[in-house]
Amino acid sequence: MHGPAMSGWLLVALCGATGAYCLARTRSCSGEARSTAGGEALMGLGMAAMAVPAAVLALPRWAWLGYAVVFGAAALFALRGAVRSSHHRHHLVGSLAMVYMAVAMTSGGGQGGHAAAGVPLLTGALLVYYGAYVLRSGARLLPQAAVAGTPATVARQPELAPACRLAMGIGMLAMLLTL
């Protein structure tokens, strides 16, 4: 993606670590949770690969088309469960956003450092969606208010998956801003 190199590398680190955690999480769960963790791992690692600063690695057009194919397949997989689960709908939107960014990069962004250009209305709609997603996800990480006079403490170690989803949402916002 395009933008300052330091922010690109920070995005690579954030998304790569998130994707690696989700990949490790697939080993400890089964069924629907495993499928969700696998989708999140693909998204995180794919975002990390796409966020490598263009000044370091200018990918050829066919590589961006490869990203579009991989995330198009992920979108079809997410479409299966989109009817029954809002999380699958989110994966569907995320996969389609990755396809959109990869296609935008084929229009010049992946060739010699020219700026990528997306459709402003679609980019704006995705920015609004991910902005709302990040705010909602961040609010869910806040401690819940005390119930019936008990202090608001966390009884068990919180799972990192919600924080990883928040991190990927922030990463997606950053990537969309570069279009």
Rank of each mutant, 00 (worst) to 15 (best):
M1A: 13
P4I: 06
M6H: 13
M6R: 15
G8Q: 09
G8H: 07
W9Q: 11
A13Q: 06
A13F: 09
L14E: 01
L14P: 00
G16Q: 02
A17R: 02
A17N: 08
T18W: 00
G19Q: 01
G19L: 05
A20Y: 03
Y21D: 03
C22T: 01
C22H: 05
L23Y: 04
A24M: 11
R27E: 08
S28Y: 06
S28D: 10
S30C: 06
S30I: 04
G31K: 10
E32D: 14
A33W: 01
R34E: 11
S35F: 10
S35K: 07
A37D: 10
G38L: 10
G38N: 02
E40V: 10
A41V: 03
L42V: 12
L42M: 13
M43D: 00
M43R: 04
G44L: 03
L45V: 04
G46W: 01
M47S: 10
A49N: 07
A49I: 09
P53N: 11
A54L: 09
A55I: 13
V56T: 15
V56H: 14
L57W: 15
A58M: 11
A58G: 14
L59F: 14
L59G: 00
R61S: 06
W62C: 07
A63M: 14
W64Q: 01
W64R: 02
L65V: 13
G66S: 10
Y67M: 08
V70I: 15
F71S: 05
A73L: 15
A73T: 08
A74V: 02
A74H: 14
A75Q: 08
A75R: 06
A78T: 04
A78K: 05
A78Q: 07
L79V: 05
G81W: 11
A82C: 14
R84C: 09
R84A: 15
S85F: 09
S86T: 14
H87T: 12
H87A: 10
H87P: 00
H88L: 05
G94I: 01
G94P: 04
L96C: 15
A97H: 02
V99G: 04
M101N: 06
V103W: 08
A104F: 03
T106P: 01
S107T: 11
Q111T: 14
H114S: 11
A116Y: 00
A117L: 11
A117E: 13
G118H: 11
P120Q: 08
P120T: 10
L121K: 07
L122T: 10
T123P: 01
G124R: 06
L127T: 08
V128N: 03
V128G: 02
G131D: 05
A132G: 09
Y133V: 03
L135M: 14
R136S: 10
S137P: 00
S137A: 15
S137M: 13
G138T: 06
G138S: 06
L142N: 08
P143L: 11
Q144W: 05
Q144E: 14
Q144C: 05
A148I: 04
G149H: 11
T150G: 01
P151N: 10
A152H: 01
T153W: 06
V154M: 13
R156K: 09
R156C: 02
P162N: 06
C164D: 01
L166R: 00
A167T: 06
M168A: 05
I170C: 13
G171S: 02
L173P: 00
L173D: 00
L173N: 02
A174G: 08
L176D: 03
L177W: 15
L177Y: 14
